[in-house]
């Protein structure tokens, strides 16, 4: 403990010296000062990629915590059947969806929670043409997911469940960085 305290004092002293000597000779230098401490090990607590997947398919409480601490490469094997059971509980009449996926294929794709992103073209969850090439701020991701869960092969089944009829955000997004609208 004593050694650690001494070490901390040393760091503080050095920080003072370095801060003092690092004059304003480079206004564009946003790099990290070498004196800030970033040491330590950080362990996964929450994980997320596709919107609402965890919320819809994983039970609250301990199962959600466990899913959130699972790395994506382990998710498919561990969670495909959990997702399939949940899908059939949500929609007992599920056969295939508008992407032509049966229950095992659809839940196999969903259980690995990663977001597919294109580097070469339009980025959207779904825009009628492009499927899963990213997630833009204005994408109505919930309607896409409801349609795939409840809409059947033609997207016409269960019409009361395939859209929440909230089609846009409550504030306009910015065209330039940082893109998200200002806080309320």
């Amino acid at each position: 403990m004593k050694n650690i305290n001494k070490f901390n004092i040393l760091i503080v002293a050095l920080t003072g010296v370095l801060t003092f000597t690092s004059c304003d000779d480079n206004d564009n230098n946003d790099n990290n000062e070498p004196t800030v401490d970033f040491s330590g090990t950080y362990v996964q607590q929450d994980q997320m990629a596709r919107p609402a997947i965890n919320t819809v398919f994983i039970a609250a409480g301990a199962p959600k915590d466990e899913f959130n601490s699972t790395i994506p490469s382990m998710m498919g094997t561990k969670y495909q059947m959990v997702f399939q059971d949940r899908l059939m509980a949500l929609n007992a009449g599920y056969t295939t969806n508008a992407l032509g996926m049966d229950a095992a294929t659809f839940t196999g794709a969903l259980a690995t929670d990663v977001l597919n992103v294109s580097k070469t073209g339009k980025t959207t969850f779904f825009d009628g043409t492009n499927v899963l090439t990213g997630r833009a701020l204005a994408d109505d991701v919930i309607d896409v997911e409801l349609l795939l869960i409840f809409g059947g092969p033609m997207g016409t089944s269960n019409p009361g469940l395939t859209s929440d009829h909230v089609d846009a955000n409550d504030k306009a997004f910015l065209t330039a960085f940082p893109y998200l609208a200002g806080a309320w």
């Binding site: 330590g40 090990t41 950080y42 362990v43 996964q44 607590q45 929450d46 994980q47 997320m48 990629a49 994506p72 929670d113 990663v114 977001l115 597919n116 992103v117 294109s118 580097k119 070469t120 090439t133």
Partner: peptide
């Protein structure tokens, strides 16, 4: 810049929060 994200045309992306031990 996309050039900093590897040479492939598509990516798989996810976010994690990790807590200091």
């Amino acid at each position: 810049p996309k050039t900093m994200l590897g040479g492939t045309s598509s990516l798989n992306v996810w976010a994690e929060t990790k807590k200091k031990q």
